[in-house]
Amino acid sequence: MAFIGDSVSRNHVESLLCLLSQSEVPKDMYKDSEDRFRKWYFPIHNFTLMMLWSRFLVEGEERMANGTGTSVFDMQLDKVDSDWAKELPNLDYAVISDGHWFFRGMRLHEAGKQVGCVYCNEPNVTAYNVDFPLRKALRTAFRHISGCRECRRRGMVTVMRSFAAAHFENGFWNTGGYCNRTGPRSESEVDFGAFDWQLRNVQMEEFERARSEGGGRFEVVDVARAMLMRPDGHPGEHWGNKWMKGYNDCTHWCMPGPVDMWSELLLAVIKKVSASHHLHQI
């Protein structure tokens, strides 16, 4: 099983490792220099767990100026990120999620030509909101998976996890935003007209498209509604990052905490898939 996505995806993996380690402590098999690609093995259960880090699911390179990152990315909306795609034929389950990296300046490319941008103001270039490149990236990723013959032969299941909103108040992460609530919101307090919910709907639409187009088994773990209600579940100022003192982390999730619930839902999906496969064999 591989988790494919950004650092919130890694947050899920770390939570899952804590849960699974109560049954068996895994062997740490691989870690790259930036701690973005990881592999663990549970020998008693013959289970391999991987983290495949990807900002956008598609190719995206940061523009540099004098050797320093500009936080502006050139996105190839029609080219899947090969760093994770090359691992697909080896997987039984691919858990895909993304979204938070799309809130950056972007120059959007298709077929080698710039087709638009995000957070920009350029003459004769169409400006898009974040949901546009997210939709395109998911469609490219899902179509690549659907076209993977080895994946179909293996019976690989793709599980999409929906967007888990951040909860910054009175600013963003770099402008003094914080999250110091101590209890969950009720459903009536959640704004389902918010942009976070729109991103979840884009994901669900692309998931349904992938499922209807065929070519693979697609399932969903939809955490968006539940996580919108948990502004109290983030590390906030207590995340202990020595490189970014003074900033609050209102994007990732405390452990133990609400993120553990994601694995309960994932287990329910796996059980459903396994039961369906067993009935099909009968």
Rank of each mutant, 00 (worst) to 15 (best):
A111F: 09
G99H: 01
S54D: 04
L57E: 09
L88C: 04
T68N: 15
F103E: 12
A111Q: 10
V95K: 01
E110V: 07
K113H: 00
T68M: 14
H100S: 01
V95Q: 04
M106P: 01
E87R: 15
M75Y: 15
V58A: 01
I96Q: 08
V72C: 11
H100L: 07
E62R: 14
E110D: 01
L108G: 10
V58S: 06
H100T: 02
F56Q: 11
D78L: 15
T70M: 13
P89A: 13
N66C: 03
D92A: 03
F102Q: 10
K86C: 14
E62G: 14
L88H: 00
G60L: 08
S82N: 03
L57G: 13
F103R: 07
G105Y: 14
V58W: 08
V72N: 05
E61Q: 14
W84Q: 07
F73L: 03
Q76R: 11
S71D: 06
A111R: 11
E62T: 10
D78S: 15
V95M: 08
V72Q: 09
Y93I: 08
D83M: 02
D98P: 04
F73P: 06
S97E: 05
S54Y: 03
A94Q: 15
G69W: 03
L57F: 09
S82L: 05
Y93E: 02
W84G: 07
A85R: 04
W84S: 10
E59W: 01
S82F: 02
R55A: 09
F56R: 13
R63D: 09
H100Y: 05
G99P: 05
N90P: 00
L91A: 04
D98F: 05
R107T: 04
V95W: 02
R63W: 09
H100D: 02
T70F: 15
S71N: 10
T70K: 13
E59R: 11
L57P: 09
G112C: 00
E87I: 08
K86I: 15
V80Q: 09
L108V: 13
S71Q: 10
K79I: 11
E59D: 02
T68P: 00
W101E: 08
E110R: 10
A85W: 02
A65D: 12
G67K: 00
G67H: 07
K79E: 15
D92H: 06
L108Q: 05
F102M: 13
L77I: 13
M106D: 03
D92W: 01
D78T: 09
V58F: 02
F56E: 14
K86S: 14
